[in-house]
Amino acid sequence: MNMDIGISTEDRAKIVESLSVVLADSYMLYLKTHNFHWNVTGPMFSALHLMFETQYTELWNALDNIAERIRALGHFAPGTYKRYAELSSITEEIDVPQAKEMIRQLVEGQEAVIRSARAAVRIADQIDDFPTADMLSTRMEVHEKNAWMLRAFLEQGAGQVQGEASST
C-alpha cells in the first residue's frame, strides 16, 4: 500500500537509516549495561547494581519505541545482533572489567547514543519529521542525564560526603 504522510519515500529512508543506528547503539548499550549489572563487584556494588538496573530497564523500553517509529515510517526495524554490531559504534565487552572501567564504558556508550540521536534529529528536522525529532530529543535528554550520573561515580572522592576526609 502506498504511504502518504507528507514525507517522501526517499526522506523516510534517510531517517530510518539514522534511526536504525540509534536503535543499534541503544541495543548495544542495553546489553552492556545489563551485563555490568549482573557482574559488578566492589565497594560501589549496591549503588551501581541499582543504577545499572534502572538504566537498562529504561533502555529496554526505549528500544520498542525506536523500532516502532521505524515501522511507522514504513520500514522494517533491524532486529539481529549481527546487524546491531554492524550499525553500532558501541563494542561489546568480552571480559568483566573493574567497576570504574564499567562506568567509564557506560559513559562512552551513553555519549555514543547521544551522538547518533543528535545526527538523526538533524535529519528529522530537515524533513519536518516532528514525531521522530521529539522522540530523539527525549532520548538525548535521558542519555545526557545518565552520563552525568555515571560520571559522578568517577569524580575524585566519589562515595564520600562532601568535606569528609578519606581515612587511610
Rank of each mutant, 00 (worst) to 15 (best):
M1E: 13
M1V: 11
I7F: 03
I7V: 11
S8Y: 09
S8M: 07
S8E: 08
T9K: 15
E10K: 15
D11M: 02
R12S: 04
K14S: 12
K14V: 10
K14L: 05
K14T: 08
I15P: 02
V16R: 05
E17A: 15
L19S: 07
L19M: 14
S20F: 03
S20N: 02
V21F: 02
V21D: 09
V22M: 00
V22N: 01
L23C: 10
A24D: 05
A24C: 09
S26I: 00
M28F: 00
M28I: 05
L29V: 12
Y30C: 03
K32C: 00
K32A: 02
T33K: 01
H34R: 11
H34W: 09
F36Q: 01
H37A: 03
W38H: 08
W38T: 11
P43N: 13
P43I: 13
M44P: 04
F45I: 01
F52C: 05
F52S: 03
T54A: 10
T54S: 10
T54L: 10
T54Q: 14
Y56L: 08
Y56N: 02
T57K: 12
T57G: 09
W60L: 14
L63S: 01
D64N: 12
D64W: 12
I66V: 15
I66S: 00
A67W: 02
E68K: 10
R69S: 00
I70N: 06
I70L: 11
A72N: 05
A72Q: 13
A72I: 03
L73W: 05
L73C: 01
L73N: 09
G74C: 06
H75F: 14
H75Q: 15
H75G: 00
A77F: 03
T80W: 13
T80C: 08
Y81W: 10
K82C: 10
K82Q: 14
R83V: 15
E86H: 11
L87C: 07
L87I: 10
S88G: 14
I94L: 09
D95P: 01
P97W: 06
Q98V: 13
Q98N: 13
Q98I: 12
Q98T: 12
E101Y: 00
M102P: 02
R104M: 06
L106T: 02
V107Q: 00
V107K: 02
E108A: 15
Q110I: 04
A112G: 04
A112S: 13
V113C: 11
V113M: 05
I114V: 15
R115D: 07
R115V: 04
R115M: 09
A117I: 01
R118G: 08
R118H: 06
A119K: 11
V121A: 06
I123P: 00
A124D: 03
I127F: 12
D128G: 11
D129T: 10
F130M: 13
F130P: 01
P131T: 04
A133P: 05
M135K: 07
L136G: 04
S137R: 09
R139T: 11
R139W: 06
V142A: 09
H143M: 10
H143D: 05
H143F: 13
H143C: 07
H143W: 07
E144F: 04
E144T: 10
K145S: 08
W148H: 07
M149K: 00
R151Y: 03
R151E: 08
L154T: 01
E155W: 06
Q156A: 15
G157I: 12
G157K: 13
Q160S: 14
G163Q: 08
E164L: 11
E164G: 04
A165G: 05
S167E: 12
T168P: 05
T168H: 14
T168L: 14
